[in-house]
């Protein structure tokens, strides 16, 4: 596969497992407040590489539950940090990976999320009231994984997302907000999960998204911006949900991602030769998964979890 060679899966697994132990570096401390997101990125990557067993499940779940706020029903980004939907989704996703939703008071968590829906259908991220379509996605995704979508007004939630649709076919953080690939993923994902993709002009949005592919093969998040490995996920997953992923050149993108690997110490960076981090390692591997890279588990584009996990959640007999 070109200059970047093959996926250094073993190295990435080692990188993820050891990142955990370098908690005291400045970089880790700056990210301390989003450690639960980090857990989701790292663990999902391990699962995609068939190495989830490299970690001790019980330990992980115990730590996850130590970020839980039983009085509100939400999760903080780390022990001692305030509850927010951003980390609640990560907690639920990690529990899904381990098939351990039983560790949760499902209704309590679902009520926390549902309680953040506003009159206009939008969602606040926490009690302080910041509104963003990211939170709409998080709420819808979390509730769906918990089989509790009926706790919110889905129609209003969908209407709010549609009100954030732009004339270029994309979506912004709020009505009038500029289209951005990350925000588009959130809105398309929320519409996909609620069976509402008909609100999207798939050709228009598909063209905008496929034009995110830059000359060097990587994807950017907005017109005239630099390519970045993280958009491999945001753009690809959106393109898959609207059935337009064939409009980009997958080989060139795979090469770009593989070129961003640190082949010595493991990990993937935003662009070639930059410093690696867990976030880009996840998005790089997830991007390869969406492109059916050999040896990587396929992923569900809407729930951002391995396909087998999502199929299990929605098709297992008890539900």
């Amino acid at each position: 596969m070109g200059d970047g060679g093959e996926l250094a899966a073993e190295k990435h697994v080692r990188y993820i497992v050891t990142v955990e132990k370098r908690k005291d570096s400045f970089e880790s401390l700056v990210m301390e407040h989003i450690r639960l997101n980090g857990a989701y990125w790292g663990l999902t990557t391990l699962d995609l590489l068939h190495k989830l067993r490299a970690v001790e499940a019980d330990e992980v779940i115990e730590w996850i539950m130590s970020c839980y706020h039983p009085e509100s029903g939400g999760f903080g980004g780390n022990v001692g940090h305030d509850a927010h939907v951003l980390y609640t989704l990560s907690a639920v996703q990690v529990l899904c990976l381990f098939d351990r939703l039983d560790a949760l008071d499902v209704d309590k968590v679902a009520d926390y999320i549902a309680g953040l829906q506003n009159e206009d259908g939008s969602f606040s991220g926490d009690i302080w009231g910041e509104v963003d379509t990211r939170f709409s996605y998080i709420a819808i995704c979390t509730l769906s994984l918990l089989h509790r979508l009926e706790k919110i007004n889905v129609q209003k939630a969908v209407d709010y997302i549609v009100s954030c649709k732009n004339l270029d076919g994309g979506f912004g953080a709020m009505p009038g907000g500029e289209s951005h690939a990350g925000q588009i993923f959130c809105c398309v994902g929320a519409l996909a999960i609620t069976g509402s993709l008909h609100h999207i002009d798939r050709d228009l949005l598909g063209w905008w998204l496929c034009e995110r592919q830059c000359k060097e093969g990587g994807l950017n998040g907005r017109p005239e911006k630099l390519a970045d490995v993280c958009y491999s996920w945001w753009v690809l997953s959106s393109l898959i949900m609207i059935d337009r992923v064939h409009w980009i050149d997958k080989d060139k993108l795979a090469k770009f991602i593989l070129n961003c690997q640190d082949k010595e110490n493991g990990g993937i960076s935003d662009r070639p030769d930059n410093a690696v981090d867990i976030y880009h390692t996840y998005f790089g591997v997830a991007g390869l998964s969406l492109m059916e890279y050999p040896g990587v588990k396929p992923m569900d584009p809407a729930y951002a979890l391995p396909l087998d996990v999502v199929n299990r959640i929605f098709l297992r007999k008890e539900h």
Binding site: I242, P298, L315
Partner: peptide, 29 residues
Amino acid sequence: THPIDTTRYICPSPFSHRVEACEAFEECR
């Protein structure tokens, strides 16, 4: 041939809440 299904969310499915668990699933089980 393809593990990634690009019409998974276009067509009705349990993942998009447009199909509930149906009798056909039971019949197949």
